[in-house]
Computed example of a mutant assay.
Amino acid sequence: MTPKEIALSAVRALDGKKGKEIAAIEIADLTTLADYFVIASGTSNTQINALCDAVEKELKEQGETPLRREGHREGTWVLLDYGSVAVHVFSQEAREFYDLERLWRDGKKLDLSGVLTAD
């Protein structure tokens, strides 16, 4: 899978589990950390873990496994590292605090209108 396909599959999995404020940012031209950041919010620690589990399941079915899964600050921020794609799932408070969209605002935000389901 290409990095963009991995990112979009992660977006679909997050959307399928009702992730909030899902965003994908292409950062390949800005850093060697990853090609894409996928960012979403969950409403509770339980939902954050369910969102991450859904991403892992979806991508595993497509032959992709994370290099690592790291929790931060007691489940308020979980990172799934797929090498070229980093999936960040936050509580709303942690997302506002770390504000990755602002930090990576020079990246190209992907148009997800054809990927996300309407609420």
Rank of each mutant, 00 (worst) to 15 (best):
A54I: 04
E101H: 01
A13S: 13
R105W: 13
V115P: 00
Y36D: 14
L100C: 12
V85M: 11
L110C: 00
P66M: 10
D106C: 00
F37K: 06
S91F: 02
D119H: 14
I22F: 07
D81C: 09
F90V: 11
V11Y: 06
A94V: 04
I6H: 04
I22A: 06
Q62F: 03
A50F: 02
D119F: 05
N45D: 14
A28L: 11
V115Q: 13
L110F: 03
E56Q: 15
D111Q: 01
A86P: 06
D15F: 04
K18Q: 10
I39Q: 09
A28R: 13
T31N: 11
E101D: 06
A86Y: 02
T31K: 09
Q47P: 09
E64I: 11
L100N: 14
E101R: 01
K17H: 13
D106F: 00
L100P: 13
L103E: 03
T46S: 10
A54N: 06
L100Q: 08
Y98K: 01
D35L: 00
D111F: 04
W104C: 02
G42W: 04
K108Q: 10
D111L: 00
E101A: 09
G107N: 03
R105E: 14
A40R: 00
L33N: 13
S9F: 00
P66W: 05
K4G: 01
R102L: 08
V115M: 10
W104S: 03
Y98V: 11
A118K: 12
A7D: 12
L103H: 03
T31I: 09
L33W: 10
H88C: 07
S9W: 02
V115W: 12
W77V: 11
K57C: 00
L112K: 12
R68Y: 02
L30T: 15
Q92P: 15
V11H: 01
T65G: 05
T65V: 12
L8G: 04
G83S: 13
G107W: 11
V115K: 06
R73K: 12
L51N: 12
E26I: 08
V115D: 07
T31L: 11
E74I: 04
S9H: 05
N45G: 15
I6W: 00
Y98T: 08
R73W: 14
A10G: 09
E61Y: 03
A86G: 11
G42S: 09
R73F: 15
V89A: 07
S91Q: 05
A23H: 05
F37I: 07
V55F: 01
D15M: 05
A7F: 04
T46Y: 11
P66A: 13
L80R: 07
N49L: 10
T65Y: 08
F97Y: 15
R69H: 07
A24I: 10
E5H: 00
